[in-house]
Amino acid sequence: MIKIPIAKKNKLFINILKLTGYVAIAILVLFLITLIFNSFLSIKTLSLQFLFNTNWQPNTKNFGAAPFIIGTLLTSVLALMISIPFSLSISIYIGYFLKNKKRKNTLETLMDLLAGIPSVIYGFWGLMVLVPVIIKIQAWLGIIPYGVGILAASLILALMIIPYSVTLGKDIINLVPNDLVEAAIGLGATPYEVIKHIAIPYSLSGLFAGHLMAFGRAISETMAVTMVIGNRNFIPTSIMDPANTLASVIANEFGEASDPLYVSSLIELGLILLVITTIINIIGKLIVKAYTIEPR
């Protein structure tokens, strides 16, 4: 057996760690290069017009990303808005009020389970339970009862992202220092007032980060959305309309695309999706930094 000196061993160990870190960065860069390289044809042919063109007609080689960018932002913003009241309440309940360890554990495990359900199952549930309900409501309202569409997608997405916001949110609320809570209670504050004036302001940046993570997930969620959004390539005029998101149109059409420009346009949609999620992440980091309360 060869004996390696300790100093050398240490160096080797650190170098292996370094290497794995660099590999992760390299993979990300290679991803970006692949996307740019493969969408080059579309970028060259369609130029910036691609972003603003509201038509997507593969048979006449007319490609525009606008319906999908709008579809993506609309479904995920709506999903986030629907989810916030629920995720916030659950986070506050688990993180602040629930003192019983057993119940707390059960609820936390359930939340993790919800986060772990495969998205195709959410999609199924949406198609079988949610869409029929929406059809009934639409018929009752006197609008065309598609069932599938922006609303169905947003509701499913909201359900899917709640556990994500809660996972971080409950821990953040739990971290609010007890002496601040006691100070507020000592001044005669009710639990609601403590939550409103102390706990939420104190944990604002963390709560924001949690919801941003959830928003990122909503933007890139593919399977469940593809199943319930109706896959129509127009700019939606109401939340009842069927539409498509960047992710869902790629999933839906990539298999059948044969024309090189068609394939390249779809890849460019992927590139746009990556850019949007990156921008949102950066904005999020900046906001978190600006609102973080320095520890005393």
């Binding site: 002496d179 601040l180 100070a183 507020a184 001044l187 007032e193 403590v194 004036h197 104190y202 309360i293």
Partner: peptide, 22 residues
């Protein structure tokens, strides 16, 4: 342990009891 509210200014901290109780 001194525990002024870190999300409030000095001014607001003095008024915290009123702010908290609405």
């Amino acid at each position: 342990r001194p525990n002024p509210f870190p999300n409030m200014s000095i001014y607001e901290n003095v008024l915290a009891g009123y702010i908290l109780n609405g």
